[in-house]
Amino acid sequence: MSFNPVIQSQETVDLLATSFAPALVMHRSRRDGRADPLWLQWTLTGVALFFLTIFIVIPLVNVFAQALAKGVAAYVAAISHPDALAAIWLTVVAAVVAVVLNVVFGTITAWAITKYEFRGKSLLISLVDLPFSVSPVISGLVFILLFGAQGYFGPWLQDNDIKIVFAVPGIILATVFVTFPFVARELIPLMREQGIQDEEAALSLGASGLRTFFRVTLPNVKWALLYGVLLTNARAMGEFGAVSVVSGHIRGETNTMPLHIEILYNEYQFMAAFAVASLLAFLALVTLVAKVVLEKRIARTTR
């Protein structure tokens, strides 16, 4: 059980009412052993909020402010430009494919890791995490080295007239690579905590392995899985570095939204760049709200 240190007590409120009339209501812990002096609370809170505001809140607000700088009509025109629409479409396609593949393989991997004991398990977990510690640019580069004109499979692909890099398949591959960890990482801790007792109960009641998975395991982790999907989707739609390397930047064909933003920005079409960016920023906000909601639900599914 975690101790909740911010329980507001009547005592506290009284104390504050007599000593301060602050716009910022500070909490003074009832537990004397844990209370910081008020001046310190104010200073630290001030520093932290200033830092967060400057570094995070203002940049976010700026996206929307710049997007709407020239009014709603210009905003709508920017995001309904054919190139923008093509970029949105490609982004959605890549994200959907990445989500589907990573849900399937991420769930299978999480199942294998949490439901059995085997040697080399921790190595496998590190492997799952690997894409997180690789620079996005390198994540793209490796696919160029495999499938590019001078890559290992390049000549063969050329002979058979298959295009992977500088085309949609390459974008999808790079996206799948960078987003692989999200689903598995959300599921592994939860499934480990839940153990295999429910599965044992289902099996001893005569259920088959597949039925046990779909009727017992999956419902137990559905919120975590949904959260993993959201994170995968957010990263897939926003991935820039890896996709930038493999895309070839062909407008209307191999441009995703982040790449389209780059092009617009480099062409000094700032407002249009921010308009497209605001869609992704909005997606980020939705993801965050969903996170707050889902985390509560996930906490409830652990014993």
Binding site: S204, G206, R215, P219
Partner: peptide, 27 residues
């Protein structure tokens, strides 16, 4: 386990929390 036709009662019950009592018993 699925073929032995044993009833197993777990210490911590292992009831399926997303199912009603009825659905648990009917499982």
């Amino acid at each position: 386990a699925a073929e032995r036709h044993v009833g197993f009662v777990f210490q911590h019950y292992a009831l399926f929390r997303h199912m009603t009592v009825f659905e648990n018993v009917a499982f």
